[in-house]
Simulated scan of single mutants.
Amino acid sequence: MSRSCLVACYLLLALGLRQACAMAADPNGRVVGGVAAAANSAPYAVSMQYQGTHYCAASILNTNWLVTAAHCLTNSAQVLGSTLVAGSIAVAGTASTTQKRTITYFVVNDLYTGGTVPYDIGLIYTPTAFKWSAAVAPVSLPASGKVPTGTASLYGWGSTSTTNTASYPSTLQVANNLPIISLASCEAALGTKGSDVHSTNLCTGPLTGGVSICTSDSGGPLVQGNVLIGIVSWGKLPCGQANSPSVYVQVSSFISWISTNQVAPS
């Protein structure tokens, strides 16, 4: 793959677009290291859909607010015309427990400048409160400044393809036991893109490949138990390759920002 195509692929994943550099399709279409999630296993995970198509994910913070990636919020008309689909592992929202909500307001971190850069975090406001159930519930936030270690679980409806031809699941996927790797290891593995990794980011492996975030996982949750430690930000395409860590917003770096910016529009 040419260097120009590689850079373009980084940006396409970061923007959560359902397209990529042309490449032969994987006939197996297998999940990138994940499996179908059980019903109610991630009641905070929400699909963001525009005209019926999933493009990003978000996590429920409380009855009216959600957190996602800033790059999912760059097109105001799309965001305000989107539907939040909660309470269903089926992306089509076919479960009897499904709750659908509109978006009337959103906030993007002032320091986010677009693309594969730090501060990729934003908040979404829905005027109709979520109703708590086994299928719809808020995620917990970590202590401010706490740097996560160990392993974590990733949830998303993003592409499951290991090539540059995307393939999307109909059901929420989960990849468990993802190793959290040091920022130094993350930067080294990403090569020239390593300079985009910031102290407010978090990275997961494995660097041997086989498991990773992918297109349209953007904004989704990386959790330890019920605690949101990361928000999907960016990574390499094709997904799941060796030396291709997944890059997230480290939520503990933004606890004050999250609290301060949950101000409902008047």
Rank of each mutant, 00 (worst) to 15 (best):
S76P: 01
S41W: 09
S41K: 06
T53A: 10
N261P: 08
Q19Y: 03
A86P: 07
P127D: 05
D120W: 02
L178D: 11
R18C: 01
R30K: 14
N109R: 01
H198Y: 15
S253T: 03
A57D: 04
D196Y: 04
S59H: 08
L228R: 14
P238H: 08
A37T: 10
G158A: 09
V139Y: 03
V263F: 00
S195K: 15
T162K: 12
C72Q: 06
I231L: 13
S82R: 10
I180N: 02
A135W: 08
P169M: 09
G225H: 13
L11N: 10
S167C: 00
A77G: 03
G225L: 11
G114Y: 10
C203N: 04
L172G: 03
S218V: 14
T204R: 01
S96M: 09
S252T: 07
A45W: 05
D217H: 03
Y44A: 11
W157R: 08
K146M: 14
G150Q: 09
W234F: 14
N40A: 13
N201I: 01
P142A: 12
H71V: 01
P142H: 13
N28G: 00
S76R: 15
V31K: 03
W234P: 07
V197Q: 07
D217R: 02
S216V: 10
S266V: 13
R30E: 15
G240W: 12
Y168W: 06
L13S: 02
W132C: 00
L172K: 10
A152F: 02
G34M: 08
G235E: 08
T94V: 12
N261C: 08
A25F: 01
A143E: 14
N176E: 12
W234A: 12
S161A: 15
L183A: 07
A57W: 01
G191S: 07
S182R: 08
V31N: 10
A134E: 12
P245M: 06
L202Q: 05
L17G: 00
T128R: 08
N226G: 05
L66M: 12
P206E: 12
L13N: 13
T163I: 04
T83I: 11
Y125Q: 04
A37Q: 11
V247Y: 06
T162H: 05
A45T: 15
S195N: 08
A134F: 02
Y119T: 02
M1Q: 02
L66N: 03
V197H: 06
L123T: 09
S82A: 15
Q250G: 00
T204M: 02
K131W: 00
A95N: 11
H198P: 01
M48H: 04
N109P: 02
V247T: 14
K100D: 01
Q262D: 03
N177V: 01
